[in-house]
């Protein structure tokens, strides 16, 4: 069962990620860079997730690692709560 956070991340990814693969079926631990997420698209994705969830990532989480995979993004979001 997909968590609500994961669902939101996948929807944001489908909206702004411009991936080569389907964001809804991509493995949660697959590399987003390998799936075609550019550094610029990663910025759009981060802002989109913040908007959808009403959160703000702190400076120490503004790293490529935070956006490495759907699971990594989820973990980053959960660390905020």
């Amino acid at each position: 069962m997909m968590s609500r956070t994961e669902q939101t991340v996948r929807e944001a990814l489908a909206e702004v990620g411009n991936l080569d693969e389907d964001a809804m079926s991509l493995a949660a631990d697959a590399s987003l860079a390998d799936a075609g997420l550019t550094s610029h698209a990663a910025v759009s994705l981060l802002l989109e997730i913040e908007d959808r969830l009403g959160i703000e990532f702190p400076p120490e989480q503004m790293t490529p690692e935070t956006m490495a995979s759907i699971r990594a993004i989820e973990a980053g979001i959960e660390a905020l709560s």
Binding site: L46, P59, T66, M67
Partner: peptide, 14 residues
Amino acid sequence: GRIGAMLAANQRRS
């Protein structure tokens, strides 16, 4: 700004 930290890290790494 804030998102610049991520772009800078990407630039150095790439």
